[in-house]
């Protein structure tokens, strides 16, 4: 009843916010002194964060979906102490990818979810109905490019003099 499903394959954004608690997340975003955030479940709450904090800005790197799926699959099924050969189970995995364990999914499904998530982000910030203000709040950044660090610094801090000392990420 929850999680990424055909035909759209999007992570279950609504359910994730509901389970985390909208009121609690609102309070956290407004009062916890948050300056930067990455990893689950932040990417899955982009619309809520954008509406709650009109000053918040966002970054995304658009990887090749199949490369990402292979990387995620290999990492989460590896026999390391963290993923324990794919035994590691997580509620967010279910709500994001449709299976509690990545090992119960497959790279093709993961790639579909990846494409659906990036599409949802791009539609929201850069789609035809997005305002100019909303457009400027998302930086699409290739993390492998030569000056990725400088660009991210300038996006995060404005034209801060210290940004010139950064080059790659």
């Amino acid at each position: 009843t929850a999680g990424a499903r055909p035909p759209y394959w999007r992570p279950d954004y609504r359910r994730i916010l509901q389970e985390l608690g909208e009121e609690r997340m609102h309070s956290l975003l407004m009062h916890a002194g948050l300056q930067a955030a990455a990893d689950e479940a932040w990417p899955l709450m982009f619309e809520f964060i954008a509406k709650t904090r009109s000053d918040a800005r966002f970054v995304i790197w658009l990887r090749d979906a199949n490369d990402w799926a292979r990387s995620a699959w290999n990492f989460f099924t590896a026999p390391n102490t963290w993923s324990r050969g794919g035994a590691y189970a997580n509620r967010f995995f279910l709500l994001s990818y449709g299976s509690c364990r990545i090992a119960d999914s497959n790279p093709k499904t993961l790639a579909k979810v990846y494409r659906a998530h990036t599409k949802a982000v791009l539609e929201y910030f850069h789609g035809p109905t997005a305002s100019a203000a909303l457009r400027n709040r998302l930086l699409v950044l290739d993390f492998t490019e030569q000056l990725a660090g400088r660009k991210l610094c300038q996006f995060a801090l404005g034209n801060h003099a210290d940004c010139s000392k950064h080059t790659a990420l």
């Binding site: 948050l34 300056q35 990455a38 982009f46 000053d55 995304i60 993390f143 995060a156």
Partner: peptide
């Protein structure tokens, strides 16, 4: 500082983002 949020899913350089924003002196939740 207005918050900056990385929207890549896991294994899409989340650590690189968190390390870099911490290097910039930002309180980074990872």
């Amino acid at each position: 500082v207005p918050p900056i949020i990385y929207l890549g899913l896991q294994k899409t350089a989340t650590s690189a983002f968190a390390n870099f924003t911490s290097l910039l002196g930002l309180v980074t939740v990872h």
